[in-house]
């Protein structure tokens, strides 16, 4: 189990940032991802592994109205 934006999410084997965002349906282009406090650059999302028990923040920087 991991935590994504404060909510429990099932951990999966070989989970990467990219796979997690896909699973969460987080399609927005401007997301700041932190895995256990560390900001992960977009260019690393494909390979960056997410270990079980991780705390992930995926903050959408959407300006809105």
């Amino acid at each position: 189990m991991i935590e994504v934006n404060g909510k429990k999410v099932e951990w999966e084997k070989d989970m990467t940032v990219e796979k997690l965002l896909k699973k969460m349906n987080f399609t927005f282009p401007k997301i700041v991802v932190r895995v256990n406090g560390k900001v992960i650059e977009k260019s690393d999302w494909q390979d960056y592994p997410i270990p079980d028990q991780s705390v992930v923040q995926a903050h959408h920087l959407i300006a809105g109205g």
Binding site: N5, G6, K7, F26, Q57, H59, H60, I62, G64, G65
Partner: peptide, 18 residues
């Protein structure tokens, strides 16, 4: 009118206001 506060993503998606 949303010009006072637009908090949907902060609240609903990012869960920054739990």
């Amino acid at each position: 009118q949303h010009d006072e506060a637009w908090l949907i993503f902060m609240d609903m998606v990012n869960n920054q206001l739990p």
